[in-house]
């Protein structure tokens, strides 16, 4: 079936089988920052922005995203605020294997736009759907508190 998406500001058309997920579509179209792990909505590595809000692309049928706007890490590379987030992840040594990284970045970017002066607890609650199997989240918290401007 035919459908269209605006991905990172660019309008694209697709012809998909109805069982295709948004994650399948994005990866096949070359947006490799969008990762696949659990494929059942629990780990957060497939997080993208849909109309500005974080969603799990593995849990969305491609066809039901028809006409919406999708943002992936690729689309934020020229965004200054996003660049700052990247730099903080690097300087705080957040990543180990890095597989969870794009999902975390997208979710953190959305969090900054949604929460004002969040507490540690609120930051953790917002990230409850993003799992990291390597790090123990200490580095992420350090980087995020700087990013969100809520260091003590």
């Amino acid at each position: 079936m035919k459908m269209g998406l605006k991905i990172n500001g660019e309008f694209k058309e697709f012809d998909v089988d109805p069982s295709t997920t948004l994650l399948d579509l994005l990866r096949e179209a070359g947006y490799m920052s969008v990762r696949r792990a659990c494929d059942t909505g629990t780990c957060g590595v497939c997080t993208v922005l849909m109309d500005g809000k974080p969603v799990l692309s593995c849990a969305i049928l491609a066809l039901s995203a028809d006409g919406h706007e999708i943002t992936t890490v690729e689309g934020l590379k020229d965004d200054e605020d996003f660049q700052r987030l990247l730099d903080l992840f690097l300087s705080e040594g957040v990543d180990q294997c890095g597989y969870c990284n794009p999902g975390f970045l997208i979710t953190a970017y959305a969090m900054k736009r949604e929460l004002k002066n969040p507490t540690d607890e609120e930051i953790k609650m917002y990230l409850v759907g993003n799992l990291c199997r390597c790090s123990g989240y200490v580095g992420q918290m350090r980087a995020l508190k700087k990013y969100l401007g809520v260091e003590e």
């Binding site: 909505g41 957060g44 974080p54 969603v55 799990l56 959305a110 969090m111 990230l127 409850v128 759907g129």
Partner: peptide
């Protein structure tokens, strides 16, 4: 509602 899933789940 605040405790349902994650922001990603609550958005859908």
């Amino acid at each position: 509602m605040k405790e349902v899933g994650s922001p990603q789940i609550r958005n859908r």
